[in-house]
Design a protein around this nucleic acid. Structure first.
Lengths: 129, 129
DNA sequence: CTGCATCCCGCGTGATACTG
DNA sequence: CAGTATCACGCGGGATGCAG
């Protein structure tokens, strides 16, 4: 497949599909939750502790969306105190690889990008926009 | 590299690097602009026409950010009427491959995900949250 | 043609407090 | 323990109009 044909995947229907997925998968927390769940089945509090900076609310919302998308399974145990365990589904696990590619690109190019930003901001005043 | 080691790329510093890149690259329009520019050097109006639904304002902002990140070069011609041409830099071109991986994942899993969402919404009332 | 300025609205997000 | 409810704030992003 040529590079041109590949980018058609992105442009596709005018980008609706790709934006839909990115809007879901690239929201502030989803990728972190998925990556953390790669360590295996885990309950709410442990996820909360493992992901620094996420609020209870955002963790709940992110998990709900992932469950709705069929990427994470949610098991509730009828105990007291309550226990809920989360786990990646097979579909969820397939997300890891493409996400890692992007992460590799990110860490590889981060220094270069930040350098470029500083150079840009140095010429014009600091305000980028 | 193991899958576990890979996800450490995402989790990394608590996700700051990854969220930074995603916040930049996965905003509503950036990927579409990059993919469109893969066809070669292009001026503002042509980009605007090729990307359905983008507003003039958002195209300008997206291009400025990409320029600031060093992913797109901007050439201004001192003519009248003015002409400005945009082109991917080498760094910008390296983004295409990882982006395409994610796009492939998106189109491959979109039907499955939407089905899962409908099933989820069918059980509980339509409100996902 | 290119793109900046202004106005304005809605949503995503954090903080905090309360419930089963 | 695992959420839900409420509030308040800021930013993304569309529409419109003006400028070089």
């Amino acid at each position: 497949m040529s590079t041109y044909e590949k980018t058609c995947l992105i442009r596709g229907d005018g980008g609706r599909a790709i934006r839909g997925i990115l809007g879901r998968v690239a929201d502030k927390w989803t990728l972190l939750v998925v990556a953390t769940l790669e360590d295996g089945r885990m309950r709410f509090t442990e996820l909360h502790q493992r992901i620094p900076g996420i609020s209870q609310r955002m963790l709940t919302r992110t998990l709900r969306n992932l469950e709705r998308d069929g990427l994470v399974s949610r098991d509730v145990f009828a105990e007291v105190p309550p226990r809920v365990e989360y786990e990646l589904t097979d579909a969820g696990r397939t997300l890891i690889d493409p996400a890692v590619r992007l992460a590799e690109w990110a860490v590889a190019h981060n220094p270069q990008i930040e350098a470029s930003q500083q150079a840009y901001d140095a010429q014009r005043g600091t305000p980028p926009l």
